[in-house]
């Protein structure tokens, strides 16, 4: 994360650049594609694509605009600004203090991935495995991977295994949801 955030395309953090790039490229694609559709079917998405294009372009290049334009783009008209005048500042301070106090109590071991990176990767892995072998079997594997990664006790591991199997099983049983088989079952002729 720290290595990535050192690069700042257009003066933005890489994460924000990716986010705005997604907005921009999606709206540009929809704008061009909308001309393939006649009348109102194409017009409605075109209007919104233009609006998103303008907004995301302004946000992407905001650091390279004149100061007055930057101020205009980054100004908020937030009703909650008013609540700051009536005590939110005090609460924010109080919350920050509470968080700092909690953070002091942390004694986390060093891991190759941050918690956020691990959960994101685990979710991607879970979805992929669900597609391959079926959600009913992938869910407890996800629970097990989570427990092992964080070095949880065997009691916790057993509980989380049971719960992460019981949830999809309940859906399978009640809604007859087809989550028992995956792509691999189909390919191997086991479905």
């Amino acid at each position: 994360m720290s290595v990535i955030s050192q690069s700042r395309p257009l003066g933005l953090d890489i994460g924000e650049f990716v986010l705005l790039g997604t907005f921009w490229s999606f709206s540009a694609g929809i704008f061009i594609w909308s001309f393939s559709y006649p009348g109102f079917t194409g017009m409605f998405p075109r209007i919104f694509a233009v609006a998103v294009l303008i907004g995301s372009t302004l946000l992407l290049v905001r650091n390279h605009l004149p100061e007055f334009a930057q101020k205009l783009i980054t100004t908020s008209s937030n009703i909650q600004d008013l609540s700051e005048e009536v005590g939110e500042g005090e609460v924010a301070e109080s919350l920050e203090k509470a968080e700092e106090e909690t953070e002091f109590k942390l004694d986390e071991p060093d891991r190759p991935l941050s918690d956020t990176e691990f959960v994101s990767a685990a979710v991607v892995g879970y979805f992929t495995l669900s597609y391959l072998v079926g959600m009913l079997w992938a869910s407890p594997v996800f629970g097990l991977a989570y427990a092992i990664w964080y070095g949880k006790s065997w009691q916790y591991t057993v509980i989380i295994l049971i719960v992460t199997f019981a949830i999809p099983y309940a859906f399978y049983d009640v809604l007859n949801l087809q989550i028992v088989d995956g792509y691999l079952h189909e390919q191997l002729g086991l479905a």
């Binding site: 929809i30 109102f40 409605f44 609006a51 998103v52 907004g55 908020s76 937030n78 009703i79 909650q80």
Partner: peptide, 30 residues
């Protein structure tokens, strides 16, 4: 605008992007 956190352009762009993503698929009006 009102719930924007620091920039109304961010808030409005996010809201309009929400509309745009829903234009995929069958059109509800035509």
């Amino acid at each position: 605008v009102i719930a924007s956190q620091g920039s109304f352009v961010k808030g409005v762009t996010a809201g309009l992007f929400g509309v745009l993503i829903m234009t995929i698929g069958i059109s509800p009006a035509s």
